[in-house]
Design a protein around this nucleic acid. Structure first.
Lengths: 245, 245
DNA sequence: CCAAAAGTGTTTGTGGTACACCCATGT
DNA sequence: ACATGGGTGTACCACAAACACTTTTGG
């Protein structure tokens, strides 16, 4: 067994070869279909090998001079036209053997994943005729290419955590909304989590929702007030955990 | 202005060149000096250009066949001998121009950062005579090489969050400890956050700390009970937030 | 006996839970 | 009128904050 200093010399004389990488960005793009109370994720059909014809998360390889975040926004813009969204970095998957091309190309493929939440109602999918693209209910996603099921699961977990202490919902709800809209939104993402009445009482007490005075009637029943999110009034609650639960 | 289909054709004819990457792993390694109530981070002195002679977080480039996590554990093992530790991925910094070598080498340098918490008392620094290596109080770190101050700040934030809802402290405290040890630990990382008496009452009620019956006397005063963390009893509190505050 | 550190209560206020009830509208 | 969904109120319980008090040791 070599001593530590011997090993160090050996390292200098015959240093381990470094890996060369291509870096990909894969997005887990979520939206909430408030009409049907379903949480959706955007999938695309692969057009090339490997995994030709299989569904996967929209992704791209990072170009020269492009930042990771730029790349994330670029594929997003290539797949959907959307005005309101929230996006953040998720996790980096970089093990060897995660991409079959590695064998032939002699480079490793690393994936920096991002997760995004967009407003479903005005997210217009860009179907270019050739490539398949679709919203899938998260509960019904098929087997995906690469390790994308793992990325998706990770993104879903993060989304749930994020909702509990961060006002991302308002990035994605319409400008004005009823308290029931908000409640439905939380329920579809988190599952049952609280009584409506208490949800309502808690949020109104916090005081960052402004009653616009306007009302909407949806079928039978008493018309609901429309509220607006007040970012300034929310400021004190930044990084205070569990505001919404 | 080209239409979208025109742009698409242009892309196929003259696709944007992809970036080639080397991937580094940088670790923000924390420990708590319970004797002096200081939160420490491990820094090393750079031995080569760029940033020769400047402090930075311990890092390494990823080798062929090595996973990111493997690389993170490797530099950790090169710098300190330690038995008990917690380690998780932090964030990936991958913008262009973050490493000056980029200009000459024609490759991008991407950094996947990890953060680790180790037991200070038995973390033995591996000083090989040449390279500087030292624990720095987090509040007194100097200007670091690259974007490592940013990585450190991010890691510090994560550490604080982690402590609040996750039993990482017990990965790093001795097998048995007094409630005061535990309280001091939390206080040094989080700052003042609660009355000792209430901290004590809350934790004991949760029931995952077992009184060993043993006592220690530290100077004057009544001897304190030694407690042991019971992982099984903690299980129900997994992913329940704010257990410790 | 006194100081110091550990450990126990006690009081008060706040906030969550569960549920019952009132209100406004369409049919 | 009544069903339907929106909105309000309340009784109960748990727990956090603050702080006083008791217990056990060393000197």
């Amino acid at each position: 067994m070599p001593t530590r200093s011997q090993r160090k010399i050996a390292d200098v004389v015959k240093p381990q070869p470094l890996a060369d990488f291509k870096v990909g960005v894969d997005n887990a793009i979520f939206s909430v279909d408030t009409a049907q109370n379903r949480l959706l994720v955007l999938l695309v059909m692969r057009q090339q090998q490997p995994f030709l014809g299989q569904w996967c998360l929209p992704g791209t390889l990072v170009r020269q001079g492009e930042s990771l975040e730029d790349a994330a926004y670029r594929i997003l813009a290539e797949k959907i036209r959307v005005k309101n969204l929230y996006l953040e970095q998720l996790y980096t998957f970089g093990g060897p053997y995660r991409d079959p091309r590695e064998e032939t190309d002699k480079v490793r493929y690393l994936s920096v994943s991002y997760f995004a939440l967009v407003r479903y109602e005005d997210a217009e999918l860009i179907a270019d005729g050739v490539s398949g693209i679709a919203w899938y209910p998260v509960k019904q996603v098929p087997q995906l290419a690469f390790d994308h099921n793992e990325i998706l699961a990770y993104g879903h977990r993060r989304l749930k955590n994020k909702l509990e202490y961060s006002p991302v919902a308002f990035d994605v709800l319409p400008e004005v909304f009823t308290l029931n809209d908000l409640y439905q939104f939380y329920t579809t993402v988190l599952g049952e989590f609280s009584d409506y009445s208490n949800f309502r009482a808690r949020l109104l007490k916090l005081g960052f929702l402004c009653d616009t005075g306007l009302k909407v009637s949806r079928g039978a029943g008493r018309p609901a007030s429309l509220y607006r999110f007040n970012a300034t009034a929310f400021a004190p609650f930044k990084d205070k955990p569990l505001v919404f639960i």
